[in-house]
Amino acid sequence: MIKALLLMGCPELPVQTAAALYIANKLNREGFEVIAAGNRAALGLLLNSDPERHYIKKAIDIDRCIADLAEKKNDYDICFVFIHSDTGISYLATVKSLSKAKTVAVIFGKEIEPLIEASRDSKIIAAKAVHNPVLLRQQIDGVKSWAALMN
């Protein structure tokens, strides 16, 4: 089974949780194993929105996730890094250094251009979005098959 990691940053922008669940649904339909990583706040929002774990099968603390990658205890085939600030770029660079995963930068917020520029070597899903997930959802829908992207 293809392992997909959703690496979430600070949940201060509401679209993050919606986008993560939307992507998770698409990945599940394609047969991926979906794992979410984030801090306590990000995971709390995600798991309270999916109490029966229809979308998120497994969740881990973001520090533990990075530690496992660094110690080569775990790895993924594809990693979606949620980015709305410079901090997200740092996490994307770290994942690219530690993992063999294909990386997808899911970029949102008000000022997305510098974030897009800093993510050029990843697949980019980007939209100016803070509260309304529709524009981001449209970008996600533009990818017909995540499994095909792996090839």
Binding site: A70, S90, T94
Partner: peptide
Amino acid sequence: VPAGYRIFENYLIGVP
């Protein structure tokens, strides 16, 4: 150091 370098029992995050 590379990203993920272990120091003070933490793994560094950042652009290497």
